[in-house]
Amino acid sequence: MARDRTPAGLVGAAPEAPFEITFDRRTLTALPGQTIAAALWSAGVLAWRTTRRDGRPSGVFCGIGQCYDCLATINDLPNRRACLVPARPGDVITTQEGHGHAELSV
């Protein structure tokens, strides 16, 4: 019954109450204990950065904090590894464009 199998069902998860975060002004639901990246994957979001040179979309690649592909702007702070940072109620995630410091450009 492939349609009935889920990761949560597999491990018998009974999570604490979900909360809301926003991604590019869109409201998403996250579970306590999930990273920002896991919450975004849950919502079907796979990309939350555009690369510095070509502006191509990027999200989680290595999943363990080694590749830095998943850098995001979290609560106005750019270059945070979404695969490591735990989601907190009210977190504001925005797609990071390039190095994330456009405000420093002259």
Partner: peptide
């Protein structure tokens, strides 16, 4: 995604 990365995201984030 990295094979181990998919495994890691599943094991810790259930996604």
């Amino acid at each position: 995604v990295a094979a181990g990365g998919a495994q890691a995201m599943l094991k810790s984030g259930l996604v």
